[in-house]
Nucleic acid binder design. Structure first.
Length: 826
DNA sequence: AGCACGCCGACT
DNA sequence: GTCGGCGTGCTC
């Protein structure tokens, strides 16, 4: 590029703004600037942001003078062409701003922004200039600490808005504001020790030991050296350098002796960059051979891949799907230079899989999810970009890693709706996005599940996906025996003990007698989901939300599960003063308490949101259960997620009806999946497991299908319903969620928007509807549902929808109503 | 997102 | 009057 030409760059900024912004490239950067690099630019009055360069051109903007790019942060693009294509697709499919996609895609540390800092200029005001109280307070604070952020000043003055004072202080010449770039990413360095090369031969070492032996005071040094040798050779292929603190710790904290050895040039100390994910030590082993069934599946998958992009692997629980994945990954890595993405719905599941994959693929395996800190994420990002990782395991956000050439994407547990991001926008579904990503890369996509989503099974039925089945559990393990308990009947006969039927209790006791474990599933946390006055029917509700309060016995509080506000439990009814308040319904906490009375002496643990808040809690409960420190595990749907235990004799579902009665078109599908998945936790090794389902409708067709493990029949019936009532996969849904703090405006604005939409889409518009929970955090809600037929003008309809929403957002009266768009809601 | 500007209710 | 909160519009 000639240095004379004036270049402009269109940037995506990490903000919810609808467009790209044009900046001028400083002449001296003409030769460096490339699409996909990050640039720091000023946006607005003073703020600095990192943008991604999307386009370089020579058209000077006519309506305004473009600002200059401040600096380029990269010497080569960090976002590649494939990713940009992917971002564009996501943005138009999910009706999200480009900046929102960028925010979801780039790790925070690659997205540095600026922070406003206030700096003291002079201690005393000039002649004739007077400071008011608050201004003086700020100056006093700055005398102590020379630099303050706006938030800190707001804290000092104890008020929300402080701009006014800062501006005034600038005018009075007292302070200066600076924009400080936040560089967050720091590679981590640590001291590593190795035996100095001049001694690191067997003969030399022996010589060294004999020298030390002669010195009576050298006992400690000999010990240290011996430990050093042991530690450095603990992994095959060693010696490897040893972390200094590790050696010191092994010597009982004796840092002095280590320092002496370093000073005497026996040990060599080097600062090295620590691989934050830890290096895989040892040798990788080949995948173990597949069973006959698995091998057949493996071959079928490969032959489908010859003509189709995607395959659905429908394998019953414990059929050994993972082993099939491992062989597929292995053949990709052996036969090509391509990368593999392995998507999992839950972060908690990644650690089990990582260890399994690392055994075979060692350091080619990288992990990525939102619980890693920014540094770790940035590191994984750059290793993926450099091709150092060949296999990436991760939750939904890992679809955004900078893959250069994907060969295979595995979406495990593809039916899980945690693949769908809800908040913040972009509200993308990682499974669907993965299919597109695969398309962009020319990669194959394998979806795996024991209970496929109706959508995916339909795609398989339509021959869009190949369909491969694993119908038997691995190693000849039998499917569990599933039995129903009619709790309506049991209640009539007075055979219920709190929420437990006699059968349930007997089976629990039997399992414990046999030294086996039990999992109990109740999809509600807390003690009791609502209280009711027996006299007048009053129910305590949240002040901010239209929700009944859940009683938590552990804290003796009523809690709103939507806005997390807690209340002291009332002693009397607030409406009529009656003392007759009754707790209705039950959650995991109540089950836990019941067990201590009904099955005395049993060791019970509870796994739900409340008990897994802290960092390792989830992992601790799981490993305690594995180590059999727990007899009975009570949990919410958290316990259904692909965990493998080998001593579970009984799985109990305490109330299947609460799942079936959920008012949503997916309720039956989801009930089937949930019950089948929990059931899958029962019975391992050489004993058939038992599943007991407590329900008031033992004849409900969904329960029947689960009992006889008839996924396909369930699918056939469900797909008929979907066709008849116009639901996915026969139509595509878009849900608009409207909210406003003003109750009188919400209904009106929703009506207006629905009417406008009807002009364009006619009967495809449903609603507005008042949702079940019509008020959350003091916002009133309405929803409008759009049902679009499948076909080529879907994208056009979405554009028309976008236009209407823009009109709505500009409407004089209704623009205060916030409208969120959710494409393919789950 | 963050910041300026302008409106409005509360307090002196 | 003045202060502080909050809604609204704009950012190359």
């Amino acid at each position: 590029v000639s240095e004379r030409i004036t270049l402009f760059a269109d940037l995506v900024l990490p903000l919810a703004v609808p467009r790209l912004y044009t900046y001028r490239v400083p002449l001296d950067l003409n030769d460096q600037v490339q699409v996909g690099m990050r640039a720091v630019v000023q946006f607005g009055k003073s703020k600095l942001h990192t943008g991604i360069i999307r386009k370089i051109h020579q058209q000077a903007p006519k309506a305004y003078e473009a600002k200059y790019i401040e600096t380029l942060l990269d010497d080569r693009p960090i976002v590649n062409e494939l990713q940009m294509k992917f971002w564009d697709w996501l943005s138009s499919y999910y009706l999200a701003h480009p900046g929102e996609i960028m925010n979801a895609a780039l790790p925070g540390s690659l997205r540095l922004g600026s922070e406003t800092k206030i700096v003291l200029l002079r201690h005393e005001p000039e002649e004739g200039i007077i400071l008011n109280n608050k201004e003086q307070t700020i100056i006093d604070a700055l005398q102590i600490q020379e630099i303050l952020s706006i938030a800190e000043i707001a804290g000092i003055l104890n008020q929300k808005t402080v701009q006014h004072y800062i501006k005034s202080l600038i005018d009075k010449g007292m302070v200066l504001v600076e924009e400080e770039l936040k560089f967050k990413y720091k590679p981590k360095f640590e001291n590593f020790l190795s035996i100095a090369p001049e001694w690191n031969e067997e003969e030399k070492l022996r010589e060294l030991f004999s020298i030390l032996e002669k010195d009576k005071r050298a006992g400690k040094r000999t010990e240290a050296l011996l430990l050093m040798i042991t530690l450095s050779k603990r992994y095959a292929g060693g010696p490897f350098p040893v972390k200094k603190p590790e050696l010191v710790k092994g010597l009982g904290g004796n840092a002095g002796v280590v320092e002496t050895l370093i000073k005497n040039n026996i040990l060599l100390s080097e600062k090295k960059r620590v691989d934050r994910l830890g290096k895989f030590e040892g040798e990788t082993i080949d995948p173990s051979p597949l069973s006959e069934q698995q091998l057949q599946a493996f071959n079928e998958i490969n032959s489908y891949f010859e003509k189709l992009q995607a395959v659905l692997l429908h394998g019953v629980t414990s059929s050994g799907k993972t082993e099939v994945y491992i062989h597929l990954i292995n053949s990709i890595l052996k036969n090509s230079d391509k990368q593999v993405l392995y998507l999992l719905p839950e972060i908690a599941l990644t650690s089990q899989i990582i260890n399994r994959l690392r055994k075979h693929f060692g350091d080619y395996v990288g992990v990525f999810h939102s619980k890693f800190n920014d540094q770790e994420r940035a590191e994984t990002w750059s290793k993926t970009l450099r091709g150092e990782y060949k296999i990436l395991i991760g939750a939904r956000s890992s679809i955004f890693l900078p893959f250069t050439q994907l060969g295979l994407i595995i979406v495990d547990e593809e039916h899980e709706n945690s693949f769908k991001q809800f908040d913040p926008s972009p509200r993308y579904h990682a499974r669907d996005a993965a299919l597109l990503l695969g398309n962009i890369h020319g990669a194959k996509v394998l979806l795996g599940s024991a209970t496929p989503s109706i959508e995916s099974y339909y795609n398989a039925e339509q021959n869009k996906f190949g369909l491969v089945q694993l119908t038997h559990r691995y190693g000849g393990v039998m499917m569990p025996e599933i039995q129903c308990v009619d709790i309506r009947e049991a209640t009539k006969k007075k055979k219920m003990h709190s929420h437990f039927s006699e059968e349930m209790l007997n089976h629990i006791k039997l399992a414990l007698e046999n030294n086996e474990q039990v999992i109990l599933f109740q999809n509600r946390r807390g003690y009791s989901p609502f209280w009711m006055c027996q006299t007048c029917g009053w129910v305590p509700k949240c002040r901010n939300c239209d929700v009944s309060l859940t009683y938590h016995k552990a804290t003796h509080q009523l809690q709103c599960h939507y806005c997390t506000t807690v209340y002291p439990p009332p002693k009397v009814c607030s409406a009529c003063g009656s003392h007759e308040l009754k707790m209705l319904g039950f959650g995991t906490e109540k089950i836990e308490e019941d067990l201590s009375i009904l099955v005395p002496g049993s060791k019970v643990a509870r796994m739900d949101l409340d008990t897994t808040r802290s960092k390792n809690a989830y992992h601790n409960i799981i490993s305690d259960f594995e180590d059999r420190k727990i007899d009975i595990l009570v949990g919410t749907q958290m316990i259904t997620k692909g965990l493998d235990f080998d001593n579970v004799a009984l799985v109990g579902i305490l109330n299947a009806d609460s799942l079936l009665n959920y008012p949503d078109f997916r309720a039956f599908e989801r009930s089937y999946q949930l019950i089948a998945q929990v059931s899958g936790r029962a019975g391992r090794k050489n004993k058939r497991g038992k599943v007991l389902i407590q329900t008031m409708n033992p004849n409900h067709w969904i329960i029947q299908k689960v009992m006889y493990n008839e996924y396909e029949n369930m699918y056939k019936q469900e797909i008929l319903e979907r066709r008849n009532f116009h639901y996915p996969p026969f139509v595509r849904l878009i849900r608009l969620t409207l909210r406003n703090k003003d109750q009188s405006l919400i209904g009106e604005s929703a009506q207006w928007l629905a009417q406008e939409l009807r002009k364009k889409f006619d009967i495809r518009v449903l609603g507005p509807e008042e949702p079940m929970i019509s008020r959350i955090r003091n916002y009133y809600y309405r929803t409008i549902l759009l049902k679009f037929e499948r076909g080529s003008n879907y994208q056009l309809m979405k554009e028309a929808l976008s236009d209407t929403i823009i009109d709505f957002r500009q409407h004089e009266k209704y623009k205060k109503t916030i409208c969120d768009v959710d494409v393919d809601p789950v």
